[in-house]
Amino acid sequence: MNIMIVDDSRTIRNILRNILEKAGYNVCPAEDGLDALEKLKLFDPNIIITDLNMPRMDGLELVKKLRSGPKTQYVPILFLTTEGNSEVRNKGRESGATGWLLKPFTADRLLETIERVLP
């Protein structure tokens, strides 16, 4: 199973990568939306996890782009958010994300959420 993680924070990328690789996933990290789009030319993810606030291209825009491209049209996308309010979540869903994951998260929570869309 391939997972792409998009986050501008190296720490978050490392944490995610660490948890996911230990769980047996194949992980491709990207620094922001543009980097992700570039890497997607080679990498074929089964799921994409993206942060919302990133330089160059933010999460919402990335999701919209991904949904319009044939390769990633139906790939589950989870966005990471620190905000618990439903406004952000709705924005994410409107742009086409499958679901969200609240920061900070535990490893169990992360894996459970991934399993929710990748049974």
């Binding site: 589950p76 929710r116 869309v117």
Partner: peptide, 16 residues
């Protein structure tokens, strides 16, 4: 419709 177009599936939900 948006549920499916956002990459989710009813079976995923049920399995979860």
């Amino acid at each position: 419709y948006s549920f499916y177009s956002n990459g989710d599936d009813a079976i995923n939900f049920l399995v979860f």
